[in-house]
Simulated assay, not measured.
Amino acid sequence: MRLNAKQIAAYTGGTFAVEPLDPRALLTGITWDSRDVCAGDLYVALPGERADGHDFVAAALSAGALGALVMQPMAEDVRALARELGAAVIDVPDTAGAVTDLAREWRSHLQGRVIALTGSTGKTTTKNLVRDVLAAAHSVVATVGNQNNELGVPKTLLSAEPETEAVVVEMGMRGTGQIAELCSFVRPDWGLVVNVGESHIELLGSRENIARAKAELLRELPEGTGLAFVNAADDFAGFVRAEARLDARRVPCVLFDGSPDAAARRVAADAADVVRPAVWAEQVELDEQGRPRFVLHAAGFGGSDAAAPHGEQASCSLNLRGLHNVGNACAAAAVGRALGMPLAA
């Protein structure tokens, strides 16, 4: 993020309780934890059940914040401190909503590809793998930890610079429509669904409803230019593709598959003449510490795999433990391959 206080006020519908000393000074980060403030940050005062962020505005400004978003009148001593430090205090109707408003506007400044992912299990691990794969060849910003909610998602966008080549956004959900709402300001170019499980089934009632909620991500991809990534081993893979209307909307789909049946499923797809770009694993085994090693395959991407009868292949081993991480790794490799990275890289 690189915005001055006047831009922030305009984007959030705010008014100045204290104007900045230098209206051209850029705020370069955002936080709502006064203990994490870095010089040049925008501090967001969020009300909470245990503590109210407005009580820590002075501490944030003293720590180097160049501005604060508030939704309550500030005491005179706090305003005096802001004036003394040259910082802005911006009054907005809703501080949490203002974070989304900022991200919505900042998204238009981003020149790189925005890649969003969701899933019932393994989405944070997969996000980390996508981040690390892409970082081998590109500048990358990704969701920190599992900050995949209404605050963490906009913060991820705001953490990127205009020239960042790839922004990897993890999206969580607890109900229908939530992923679509996140997509309304993230505007992902590419979308990846790790799997459809039973998380939040008590809220959504069935795996079909969970799949519909996950498919919102793919349904929001731009027609004609978007790219979807779907887990071929998931029994709801076809349902998700159909629910998102990928073929009708001309959104290509890349399949990834880390299951023991991956090779057979690929052969069946060839026979049915519904071949899609794909990344899959064969010859999977675990070492003595439970870490997978396997042969990674890719086909259908063109370029270096076009001349090979069975696509590209490369030996792969993971530091992560568990067979379930083979599928997560294939997902990350699929994103990298779609960005033009050689499979070996």
Rank of each mutant, 00 (worst) to 15 (best):
A314M: 06
G238F: 04
R293K: 13
L158D: 00
E84C: 05
N4F: 09
V335A: 01
G14I: 10
S159Q: 12
G119Q: 08
V230I: 15
Q72N: 04
Y11L: 14
E288R: 15
D305T: 11
L218N: 00
F185Q: 10
A233W: 11
G302Y: 04
A269N: 02
P23G: 12
T121M: 05
F294R: 02
G290E: 11
A268T: 08
V99H: 05
P162M: 02
G226L: 04
R266Q: 14
L69Q: 09
C253V: 15
D52H: 14
M74K: 04
K6W: 14
D91V: 11
A98H: 03
T95Q: 06
L343C: 01
E19Y: 00
L134I: 02
V18M: 04
A233I: 11
P154L: 09
A299I: 05
E198M: 14
A63R: 15
T225W: 03
A299R: 12
E220R: 14
S159R: 14
G336E: 09
L157Y: 00
N146D: 04
R207Q: 15
E105N: 12
K155N: 15
I179H: 10
E243A: 15
A39C: 10
A10S: 14
W32N: 13
G290D: 13
E216V: 13
D261I: 01
G122M: 07
G172C: 07
A96S: 12
S199D: 04
G177E: 15
D189S: 13
A59R: 08
R107L: 08
R241Q: 15
R337W: 02
V295L: 12
A281G: 08
F239D: 06
V130T: 03
N209E: 15
F301W: 02
L227Y: 00
S108V: 09
L323S: 10
I115Y: 00
A344H: 10
A51P: 00
A306Y: 01
R104A: 15
W106M: 12
L42Y: 05
S34W: 01
A215L: 05
M341E: 10
V284R: 01
F229H: 07
A334E: 09
S304K: 01
R276Y: 10
Q178P: 13
V18I: 12
P93Y: 01
A39N: 11
E84T: 13
D101G: 06
G97D: 02
L26C: 03
G97W: 01
E208K: 08
D22Y: 08
A308Y: 00
